[in-house]
Amino acid sequence: MLELAALTAFFMLVQYMITVGILNQYYQINLTSMCINIILAVSLNLINGFTGQLSLGHAGFMAVGAYSSVVMTQMLGQPFIIGILAACLSAALAGFVIGVPTLRLRGDYLAIATLGFGEIIRVVLQNIDYIGGPAGIVGISKLTTWTWLFAGTVVSTLVIVNLINSSYGRAIISIREDEIASEVMGINTTRYKVLAFVVGALFAGFAGALYAHYFYIIKPETFSFLKSFDVLVMVVLGGLGSTTGAVIAAVFITVLTAALQTFPAVRMILYALILIIVMIYRPQGLMGNREFSLKIFG
């Protein structure tokens, strides 16, 4: 109850600050990026951190979500909620189609296969004229509000945390711990890996829809493998297998990126340096696999 009250209070406070203009455009943009990054990091963490399957195609699912939601809202004139549903479903479907064949692969092979699929999605988008080809789609109406962002982030995190704490989650973690042992325990490992992959992709698609309806323009380039790496960095930085870590790292990286925006020349160097230092002194990530418990998340 206390957590619920705290979350509500935080939501109202930010909403108030936006309304009266304390949080200007600049802060709002960063707040949006932060929420989207949290959803991306928490969902990728389900695949990479908890299931132990190294996926490098997260941006691909984000792209699927972004484009399908925009097609719904801008081209077919549907309300935002339909766009979001379409984003989630199509990204989940893409996750399923890609997951079933690739999740038989392990380690490096899976990483390369998912990287490849992520790029295929991008190239396919580039070649469909209906959605603007390489130029993308411009003039997307700004439907992503603070309410959507906040509710989206909370719901995504809650769903994933509850999944991990369920008996499904136990099976998922056992796959990371030892795939052969979990198979021997009678766990259908392919089924659970696909499940984690589909849920992860679904929320990446959701994040894509929120992104597209805030930043006015989407193009295939936005969703290149560099975006996937950004999210991967957050997950590794936060600690593979810690949802709290993923949230903290997503916030940290967003703030860091924003702060370094003013030093464009040294930005990437500083960014890389900070990552190297964290990896040397906290190779298990900021949180390891521990969680900072908020009861509402459990």
């Binding site: 973690i173 056992s174 711990e177 042992a181 009678g186 696999n289």
Partner: peptide, 14 residues
């Protein structure tokens, strides 16, 4: 039919 796999293979983080 259940199995005690070679090399024990316990789930170490559990």
């Amino acid at each position: 039919i259940s199995q005690v796999p070679e090399g024990r293979r316990v789930f170490s983080a559990m």
